[in-house]
Design a protein around this nucleic acid. Sequence first.
DNA 1: AACGCGTGGAT
DNA 2: TATCCAAGCGT
Length: 321
Amino acid sequence: MPSGGDPDLRVATASAAEPDTQGTRGDGALAVDRLLPWFAEHGRDLPWRDPDAGPWAVLVSEIMLQQTPVVRVLPVYRAWLQRWPRPADLAADAPGDAIRAWDRLGYPRRALRLHACATAITVDHGGVVPDDVPTLLTLPGIGEYTARAVAAFAFRQRVPVVDTNVRRVLTRAVRGRDEPREPATTRDRAELETLLPPDPEQSARYSAALMELGALICTARSPDCDRCPVQDRCVWHRGGRVAGVARRAVQTWHGTDRQIRGRMMAVLRAAEHPVATTDLLAVADDTDQARRCLDGLLADGLATAAAPDPATGAETMTLPR
DNA sequence: AACGCGTGGAT
DNA sequence: TATCCAAGCGT
């Protein structure tokens, strides 16, 4: 269960002392007394939701979950915290170790930023994960979403946490629309703010419940409205689930720089010793593209020039030290 | 404010 | 097979 124990719903229904001026807490589409019981029953038992998971564990999970599905994060997350249980443990190792442990979660720059984040926490914050949104926002790899996720889920604060799931649920259930995937905005956070229950602990659970609803039921491609706890109040469902406009076409994958960079990183991760630069360049047919991609990796700090091979004198590369 | 940035499973 | 999509961030 998400956080153990029965959710305290006493403040879920608007009281005389706390008038429900928005009309959304008690009887709105996303009423607290609908979401929290559903979450308690159906929420996944994920390790970063365990009460024993500290702020560092929550932070690590949030960075890993940026654009990467839960099932792929789980094993890497466990190994990561086993190896680096505190920020200072990670900071003490080379960034290349973080990139290698990151394995194939994708966007390896996140591993680099998480390492930089651990270093900043160690050097600038005494090894303690900051507990306020403004300070969290100063850390590498932590943006508007992740800062609030850490504040809410690790420190149980009453802050609006809006990710792509929450945004989709809000857009559908409250505004009755179905928009293509778009980044969360200040407006989305303001809207969620009006829905959050007054109690901080409960509001943290509420945000987690909204995210879970978007992840399990109110999904982008095929929402399972028949199992939705707020189906009868969802404006989008009541309006006939009108499909939104198609979103801008995404970049085709085959032959992109991203694909080539990915191949080069796979070679670097797998290598026990420095890799000949020519071996990296060989992953692409187009030599101009290969050079451009390798230069990009060097500029990003994901690859580092190493000493020439003693036997051949060939130029070599490694993960950053 | 668009764009670039990995990876792999589902449809 | 091609496309979509998964707890965004930094520039």
